[in-house]
Design a protein around this nucleic acid. Structure first.
Lengths: 230, 230
DNA sequence: AGAGAATATGAGGCACCCCTCCGGTTGGTA
DNA sequence: TACCAACCGGAGGGGTGCCTCATATTCTCT
């Protein structure tokens, strides 16, 4: 993903000679350390701490992952896949409302377990990032999830897929606040919000939905100093 | 609040000789600068930037406000008062649901206009802070606001005053994301959540409410590096 | 006008984090 | 076994922000 002979940017050309054994070991130690650091402190955890926790010098970290974004992507690829699978499954569920709940609940669960994922879910990676594709796919699935639930009449018709970002963002801070004190409290918040999503009870909303473009810009603006540079 | 001859901690004993004219001028310049820095960047804005914007050296800032907390409190006293007045008014409104909306909408508006206030609303100041009393008062009023709306039957009965913190927290991140892109989008989120608060539509919630003590601990845990030291 | 207290200044020490670079080390192969 | 490319270590230069303190300046009162 970073190391290796020149070229090999997209992920398929040269088979790239396997890593030396010590390098392989270090790479894995780094990923393990990154997972725990990011989970505790978010995507902006000091890289020097990741290196220390991996029992490796800082130079070694940079050799394997030249930028923070490289490390973030390698660290979260799996969890992003879990989220994506939840979305894929959601669109196949007979009860579209249950599908929506499954999608959102899985997402929130991942967010609440991992501050780094919490950060990642809230933002949009740069186009160049290899995980950006997964984000895009999840968004497509989100559109279907919303449409199906509206067709079945369970989801209020004035809700747009962009409104799902409200769930991500609002849950983000709620879980950050309650995580250490009441690890399940976020479910209460989620279901309060979901009650507001149902068709019965819908009252007119006071502001128009975000456009897709606004949504992207909003997600990018949250990027701050995280892994979002370029 | 910080300067001046010894003693004079609570705010009434020695009349405390008035500030010299230059000191008075600087103090006001500092507050103005702090308001704009905090509004843009949150409560953790670099103090050196506040000083620079005030056209004053860093030492001067520390002379007037020995700790960040001192500066934060002086900066936000007025906005906290506005919030509190909204709460006082809310409990007098005939329609308790309208009162709840007025309270929350005012709060969210303040949060969305000012990142610093957004931070401040999410956390709990230390007992020693002079603004802590206002926070406590607002909380008391929040209890009444909730109770009245439940008595009138408009607010779902399984909601507790602690759940109002979900509004603060969730709005916090939503407005941070959308503030620069769609300044009114937060109203949409707020009213989605409020639709979930109504009595009709209430579905059983999957997690118990926070206790008061959990709420405080959660708010403190968000304090991070902000103005919350000691 | 002059003295003295109050105030302002800003360089500087400390801590944190970023990222680079080059000499030393090691794994795997001939 | 010996070689060398690949790899590792970690000191160090750069940047930011915090806070302090000795010195210089300015107000105010007599």
């Amino acid at each position: 993903m970073a190391i290796d002979p020149p070229s090999a940017s997209a992920g398929n050309p040269a088979p790239a000679r396997p890593l030396r054994r010590d390098a392989q070991r270090n790479r894995e130690a780094l990923l393990t350390a990154a997972r725990s650091c990011f989970a505790e402190q978010g995507m902006e955890a000091p890289l020097e701490q990741v290196a220390k926790r991996a029992g490796v010098a800082i130079g070694t970290l940079y050799r394997h992952f030249p930028t923070r974004l490289d490390l973030v992507q390698a660290t979260f690829a799996e969890k992003l896949a879990v989220w994506r699978e939840a979305a894929e499954k959601a669109v196949t569920m007979d009860d579209a409302w249950a599908g929506l709940c499954h999608f959102l609940e899985t997402m929130c669960e991942l967010q609440s377990q991992d501050r780094g994922f919490n950060d990642l879910a809230s933002i949009r990676l740069p186009e160049s990032a290899c995980l950006a594709g997964a984000q895009t796919r999840i968004r497509e699935l989100g559109v279907h999830i919303v449409e199906r639930a509206q067709e079945q009449g369970s989801l209020r018709p004035d809700l747009t897929p962009e409104d799902l970002a409200f769930v991500i963002w609002s849950h983000s801070r709620v879980t950050e606040a309650t995580h250490a004190i009441a690890p399940d409290a976020w479910r209460r918040h989620l279901y309060l919000l979901l009650d507001g999503f149902r068709t019965d009870r819908a009252h007119p909303l006071p502001a128009p939905p975000l456009t897709e473009e606004q949504l992207y810009r909003a997600m990018i603006s949250l990027g701050g100093n995280g892994a979002c540079g370029a």
